[in-house]
């Protein structure tokens, strides 16, 4: 009798140990899908375009060599040559703007004089 109880107890513990994490993982993913669907539905209702963080959609890049500003919060008007933050120094991902540092020492420039630019 004791042996039967021991086997039953051990098998129950084993099932619980394996099954519970698996069940909770499945349940979690369903919740995620549900929240994603809810977010998509909400965005449809409000008329806003949804942004799915983590969806790596490189389709546009592969489909042609076109520069796209989409989803960038840029406020471009047609014919406008100025990007919103183009004159802002200290852009961590971009190059240093003209005048803020000397031109690169690539042998093309005769001196460290800052270039002059004018757009008409």
């Amino acid at each position: 009798m004791k042996r039967t109880f021991a086997i039953l107890f051990a098998s129950t513990a084993l099932v619980a140990a394996i099954g519970l994490p698996a069940w909770s993982a499945m349940h979690g993913s369903v919740q995620f899908e549900g929240s994603r669907d809810a977010a998509l539905a909400a965005s449809r209702d409000s008329g806003a375009s949804p942004v799915l963080v983590g969806d790596h959609d490189d389709g546009d890049r592969r489909h042609g060599r076109r520069l796209r500003h989409g989803g960038d919060d840029d406020d471009h008007d047609e014919g406008d040559g100025e990007d919103d933050d183009e004159s802002r120094p200290g852009n961590s991902s971009g190059p240093a703007p003209a005048g803020s540092v000397a031109p690169p020492q690539n042998g093309l420039f005769g001196s460290g004089a800052a270039p002059k630019v004018q757009v008409n």
Binding site: G81, D83, E86, P95, V101, P104, N106, P115, V119
Partner: peptide, 14 residues
């Protein structure tokens, strides 16, 4: 971008 530090400006309109 080190290639263009100090020689970069705004894009140019049509």
């Amino acid at each position: 971008t080190a290639e263009i530090n100090g020689i970069t400006g705004a894009s140019v309109g049509a």
